[in-house]
């Protein structure tokens, strides 16, 4: 406390606390308190309103015996395994293409970024219509090639694929922007040196672009995986809750939403959110450990 002895230092500390007070109050209420409260709720049988009873680990025990939860967990992992690699590869290719100095490239950028800012509800709505099995554009085009299109959104075997297509369509733009920012950070001199050595495009990509872009790629993979563990919007928007397609597409967060906010099993929902947090935490820590093997920090 020696540091704060002078009048001036005390005045500064006082000013600082006034400045951080609104923020810290918010964090204490909406984050710290809410976090602890959620743990507490997860040990109760809290419904919508009224008194909740402490029931110990019951919610967690129920969760680990809940087939719906396992199905949702598997579905969520499917979303990650299908969408994250597809997004990373496609957006890297698009970013490489957009990084070429060509006439009219700006128009392509604008168009490819459009899904980022489009209201998800409108996106879900139009894709639901595109996937309509009788009158939808997708099955009509497939029909032209003599393929009988499936009932995309109500067949539990394909509903997840349909949602994945939409999620990839929505998510590429953001990843492209981030890759482009990374590409523009690579110094041109590396490529000039490689040209002098007579390296071809593939060699240049493998020995310059990819290693120098690996921190960006790593960061994107980590954030995309975290994001896809929380996938909800498009499932909710495209598949009616009572449809048979929901079983094949339901993610953890979709199940959480149904339990906590349509059936009002809040204690159970809270427990599920806590388990989701632990899963994300473990996966992220594993990735942080693995990064040393492939990420190159100049």
């Amino acid at each position: 406390m020696k540091k704060y002895k002078t009048k001036r230092a005390r005045k500064e500390a006082l000013a600082a606390y006034t400045f951080i007070l609104p923020f810290i109050t918010g964090i204490l209420i909406f984050n710290v308190y809410a976090f602890l409260k959620n743990i507490f709720i997860s040990f109760t049988n809290k419904k919508s309103f009224g008194a909740a009873k402490f029931i110990g680990m019951d919610n967690y025990v129920r969760l680990f015996g809940d087939e719906k939860f396992y199905q949702a967990l598997i579905n969520t992992l499917c979303y990650i395994v299908i969408c994250v690699p597809a997004i990373i590869i496609l957006s890297l290719l698009i970013a490489l293409a957009l990084n070429v100095k060509l006439k009219g490239i700006g128009i392509f950028r604008t168009l490819i970024y459009l899904p980022i800012i489009t209201l998800p509800t409108a996106v879900g709505m139009v894709w639901k219509w595109l996937f309509n099995n009788q009158f939808g554009l997708i099955n009509a085009v497939m029909g032209k090639f003599g393929i009988q299109g499936p009932a995309w959104l109500s067949d539990p075997n394909v509903s997840l694929i349909a949602v994945c297509i939409v999620l990839i369509w929505c998510s590429i733009g953001t990843a492209v922007i981030i890759f482009l920012a990374g590409l523009q950070g690579i110094e041109k001199t590396y490529y000039e040196a490689a040209d002098i050595d007579g390296a071809n495009s593939v060699q240049k990509f493998l020995s310059i672009t990819f290693p120098l872009l690996s921190p960006t790629t790593f960061m994107l993979i980590v954030t995309e995986i975290i994001g896809f563990f929380q996938v909800f919007d498009m499932i909710f928007l495209m598949i009616p809750p009572t449809s048979s397609g929901m079983a094949g597409a339901r993610s953890i967060v979709m199940l959480f939403y149904e339990e906590a906010f349509t059936k009002f099993n809040k204690g159970y929902g809270a427990a599920m959110a806590n388990i989701l947090f632990l899963i994300i935490l473990v996966i992220t820590i594993i990735q942080m450990k693995l990064q040393k093997k492939w990420v190159y920090y100049g």
Binding site: F23, I27, A34, N38, A260, A273, F277
Partner: peptide, 25 residues
């Protein structure tokens, strides 16, 4: 100011928690 690191680290640690945890509270 005293406690600067504490408040900053406390805030940052909250960034890792997924949004769904806060919804019921």
């Amino acid at each position: 100011f005293p406690g600067k690191n504490f408040w900053f680290v406390l805030s940052l640690s909250m960034m890792m928690i997924p949004y769904q945890i806060f919804l019921v509270p």
